[in-house]
Design a protein around this nucleic acid. Structure first.
Lengths: 188, 188
DNA sequence: ATTGCCATGTAAGGGGTTACATGATTAT
DNA sequence: ATAATCATGTAACCCCTTACATGGCAAT
């Protein structure tokens, strides 16, 4: 039996924040949660249907801002209970698949110049992520102080993990670049 | 078209270090590379067959230490060329799926006590990993200094990334635990 | 005009996980 | 005896990604 999909739980979680459309859910994950979780429409929409069938969420047809109808989903009590049960379980260990690391690990085959390029790309990504996160942090800190029972302090903790992660990545990239720069090119 | 499997490249990479059996490859990945790459036997053995068919590796029947025969695979020139081409390509961005983070992010639904448990498990994992990595680092540093053209300096760079990662994780866990400890329990 | 955002999906198909299977040897 | 290591696989099946499809509205 393959591992259970966690898409439904990600959706249930989002809907404890506020009612959302499928589009909203994707957007929320992409904007706030990108660095640790992603879903695509082709997972979200079928999952929404199944959650409705299971009575864990309910869909309501509403008018969008531009007259077009859309389906707003909200979580039911049964959905909350199911989510809570899952949240209490230990997280499944994640199977790591860092392609960057794999390529660097075998970098002796292609030499330091290629590795420096990889590190340059990683560095740029880390800095980009940091710029985005730092803006959100201030906002979440305010909310977390004002409403300690809200989602804010939990979101803040995770966001800080992301910030730490990319700070670490930035430092490591710089250090690894220095180290690589001192290595000899292999004979072509 | 789904993403191409990277299992064959992971295997090719291993075989640039030395000839290995399928079992050796799994072992090498589990011992040295666990923190950033994993493969299972059900991926390795079929992939080995395909790589042989493609002329990228060659299998040789040899006597194991205990008389039982085993197949030792070695990479061919064509295999090296293919690997190098892949190593030069930019790494595919990885789709993050940190279940731990997802559970903490929605932690408001279950309260700080549950989150503290999650963080405790994460912390223990990080410390365990660090203990294992620190032992390897010293050994790799020696090798990297002695043989700058070997795999050692590249492996060391990646290993240090792993060490940094788990140090960061350790610090973040402690910080997050402090923060969580100050939060009110939700009404049950 | 054209780009971008809102909004919701379906189809195809490989990738990867879990479970199952086997069996000899060595160490405790 | 029993557990651990060596050694090699197969079967089933879900998960997830990629590609495709549609169309209105707003802004430049």
């Amino acid at each position: 039996m393959p591992r259970q999909s966690r898409t439904p739980y990600a959706i249930l979680g989002c809907l404890t924040i506020e009612p959302m459309t499928g589009y909203d859910i994707k957007n929320f994950l992409s904007r706030r949660v990108v660095h640790f979780w992603q879903e695509s429409y082709s997972q979200i929409y079928p999952a929404l249907e199944e959650l409705v069938d299971g009575g864990l969420i309910e869909g309501e047809e509403v008018e969008g801002e531009r007259g077009r109808p859309k389906t707003l989903y909200r979580i039911t009590q049964a959905g909350r209970d199911r989510l809570k049960a899952w949240l209490r379980e230990p997280a499944a260990p994640m199977v790591p698949r860092y392609e960057h690391s794999l390529k660097l690990f075998f970098g002796a085959n292609v030499g330091p110049a290629v590795c420096l390029e990889h590190l340059g790309r990683l560095l740029a990504e880390a800095r980009e992520a940091l710029a985005a996160f730092n803006a959100v942090e201030v906002e979440l800190e305010r909310k977390a102080d004002a409403q300690p029972r809200s989602h804010a302090p939990y979101q803040l903790a995770v966001l800080r993990g992301g910030i730490r992660y990319f700070q670490m990545a930035e430092n490591w990239c710089l250090e690894a670049q220095e180290q690589m720069a001192r290595l000899p090119e292999p004979p072509s």
